[in-house]
Amino acid sequence: MSRLPEHLRRAARTRTDEAEKRARVALAKLAKAREPISFAAVARTAAVSTDFLYKHRELRFLIERHREKSGAGVGARHDPQPAESSTSAAVRALSARLSQQQREHREEIARLRKALEVAHGENLALRRKLAEYE
């Protein structure tokens, strides 16, 4: 397996660092405004995915700690399952959309092939008529 070029690794690291920074700022902003803190709220405010927040151990810990401090407690704690199920729902929706597009493309290809057959037939007929006049 080939390694990524250094410039791509740096770009990915920079993108991750910027996302982490946005998440920290969003968390502080929500806490300062005394708004409910959840993975979805932080993700929405920081323009990152909930998956990113759940996988980032430190951010996950901070969000859970803020959530517990705000009184949400253990009973309201969100499990990663909702994020996984929403991800699964997104995957299912995209898969259905892709299947629909594939069906439409197959139908269009069939129509175009039929039109091409007709055009070939007309072309052949015109060549035969032309051959008669020569």
Rank of each mutant, 00 (worst) to 15 (best):
A28M: 08
A28C: 13
A28E: 14
K29Q: 12
L30D: 15
L30G: 03
A31S: 07
A31L: 03
A31I: 01
A33Q: 12
A33R: 14
A33L: 03
R34N: 13
R34D: 15
R34F: 07
E35Q: 15
E35Y: 09
E35G: 10
I37H: 11
I37Q: 14
I37G: 06
S38A: 09
S38H: 15
F39V: 01
F39E: 00
F39R: 02
A40D: 06
A40F: 07
A40S: 15
A41C: 09
V42D: 01
V42H: 01
V42K: 06
V42F: 00
V42N: 01
A43S: 03
A43N: 01
A43M: 03
R44K: 14
R44P: 04
T45L: 07
T45Y: 04
A46T: 05
A46R: 10
A46I: 03
A46K: 06
A47D: 07
A47I: 08
A47G: 09
V48W: 06
S49N: 11
S49F: 00
T50G: 14
D51G: 15
D51C: 13
F52C: 07
F52L: 10
L53H: 15
L53F: 12
Y54P: 00
Y54N: 07
K55I: 03
K55T: 09
R57P: 06
R57T: 01
E58H: 05
E58F: 09
L59C: 02
L59S: 00
L59D: 00
R60T: 04
R60N: 14
R60C: 10
F61T: 11
L62N: 10
L62A: 13
L62F: 15
L62T: 13
I63L: 03
E64S: 06
R65L: 15
R65W: 12
R65P: 00
H66M: 13
